[in-house]
Amino acid sequence: MFDGGDFSAAVFSGGTANFSEGWFSSGTVNFSGAAFSGGTVIFENAIFADSTVYFDALFSGSEVWIGGAHFLGGTVYFGASEFASGTPPAGRS
Rank of each mutant, 00 (worst) to 15 (best):
residue 90 A to E: 00
residue 87 T to M: 06
residue 46 A to D: 09
residue 16 T to K: 14
residue 15 G to C: 12
residue 16 T to P: 05
residue 57 A to Y: 08
residue 18 N to H: 02
residue 38 G to C: 07
residue 49 A to P: 00
residue 84 A to K: 13
residue 85 S to M: 07
residue 7 F to N: 00
residue 88 P to I: 05
residue 12 F to R: 02
residue 3 D to Y: 08
residue 17 A to T: 15
residue 41 V to D: 10
residue 70 H to W: 00
residue 93 S to T: 11
residue 35 A to E: 10
residue 22 G to C: 15
residue 34 A to K: 08
residue 61 G to L: 08
residue 14 G to T: 09
residue 62 S to V: 10
residue 22 G to H: 13
residue 71 F to S: 06
residue 89 P to R: 09
residue 13 S to I: 03
residue 65 W to M: 10
residue 45 N to T: 10
residue 22 G to F: 11
residue 62 S to F: 07
residue 28 T to P: 05
residue 93 S to F: 03
residue 78 F to G: 10
residue 16 T to Q: 15
residue 19 F to C: 04
residue 87 T to I: 14
residue 47 I to N: 09
residue 8 S to A: 13
residue 61 G to N: 11
residue 49 A to W: 06
residue 68 G to N: 05
residue 85 S to Q: 09
residue 27 G to K: 04
residue 29 V to A: 01
residue 41 V to A: 13
residue 32 S to H: 02
residue 10 A to N: 13
residue 42 I to N: 15
residue 32 S to D: 15
residue 61 G to F: 10
residue 87 T to K: 05
residue 30 N to T: 11
residue 14 G to H: 05
residue 22 G to L: 12
residue 92 R to S: 09
residue 81 S to C: 02
residue 39 G to I: 06
residue 77 Y to D: 13
residue 70 H to C: 03
residue 58 L to M: 13
residue 2 F to W: 13
residue 43 F to E: 11
residue 19 F to I: 03
residue 51 S to I: 01
residue 33 G to P: 06
residue 22 G to E: 06
residue 90 A to Q: 00
residue 86 G to C: 10
residue 27 G to N: 00
residue 17 A to E: 10
residue 80 A to T: 14
residue 7 F to T: 00
residue 61 G to M: 12
residue 45 N to K: 11
residue 82 E to L: 11
residue 33 G to I: 07
residue 54 Y to T: 09
residue 86 G to D: 04
residue 11 V to T: 14
residue 75 T to K: 02
residue 78 F to S: 04
residue 77 Y to H: 07
residue 14 G to Y: 04
residue 75 T to N: 04
residue 28 T to Y: 08
residue 76 V to N: 06
residue 34 A to W: 04
residue 45 N to D: 13
residue 26 S to V: 00
residue 11 V to Y: 07
residue 27 G to H: 00
residue 58 L to S: 13
residue 67 G to I: 01
residue 62 S to T: 15
residue 41 V to S: 10
residue 71 F to M: 05
residue 35 A to I: 14
residue 77 Y to P: 02
residue 66 I to T: 13
residue 19 F to R: 02
residue 50 D to W: 05
residue 53 V to D: 02
residue 53 V to Q: 03
residue 52 T to L: 05
residue 70 H to T: 11
residue 50 D to N: 14
residue 53 V to L: 05
residue 8 S to T: 09
residue 38 G to N: 11
residue 67 G to Q: 09
residue 2 F to Y: 11
residue 5 G to T: 01
residue 80 A to I: 02
residue 40 T to L: 12
residue 19 F to G: 05
residue 52 T to R: 13
residue 42 I to E: 12
